[in-house]
Amino acid sequence: MREVKDRPPASGFSRRDFLKGSSAVAAASLAAQEALGQEKAQAGSQVVSGWTEITLDVNGQKQKVKVEPRTTLLEVLRRQLDLTGAKPVSLDDSTGASTVLVDDRPIEASTTLAVAVVDKKIRTVESFGGPHPDPVCSAFVEYDAQQCGFCTPGFVVAVRAFLDKNPNATEEQIRQGLNGNLCRCGTYAQVIQAALDVVNSNQQ
């Protein structure tokens, strides 16, 4: 698999690069534009342009990555860190497939700029695995809450975040609280069962 060093051109940019970068942002996807709006609101005075190296805290590890202002967190995770659990399903933030946790809050990596999450703790679905998988993952397997599985990682992260916030969630609350995630194969019925099982296990 590819290493980070193989990636984009070296940094060291000029005023011209910055302008290029800016116009590129203007032409970039709706997703990136929306995400830039969020970033502006949060980042204050820092100016970033062209390709630059940043450090992200992903699954407890500091990772150096190279990004442009328009680079989404999802692209960095998937293409530079080979963390491909979060999926690119939609450019418009409407499916939950790219859900990751940033400072424990679920966000869509597809519409979050990489530069906006420097100094934040990013957790991807891959951190749910290992020898002792997160009970949400195990419950998804137990209840067969997955078919093709493409929406599953996003759903798993969303369920985890939802249950952390609502550890005693009822079935009705689960049906109301997880509408941000889209599944085409139709696994919702078993997602509900899996989430309820995690709640019940917590209560025992």
Partner: peptide, 14 residues
Amino acid sequence: GLEKSVGEAKYTYD
């Protein structure tokens, strides 16, 4: 199942 739910399953896009 676990490969899918912890994001380790590699699709064409991955």
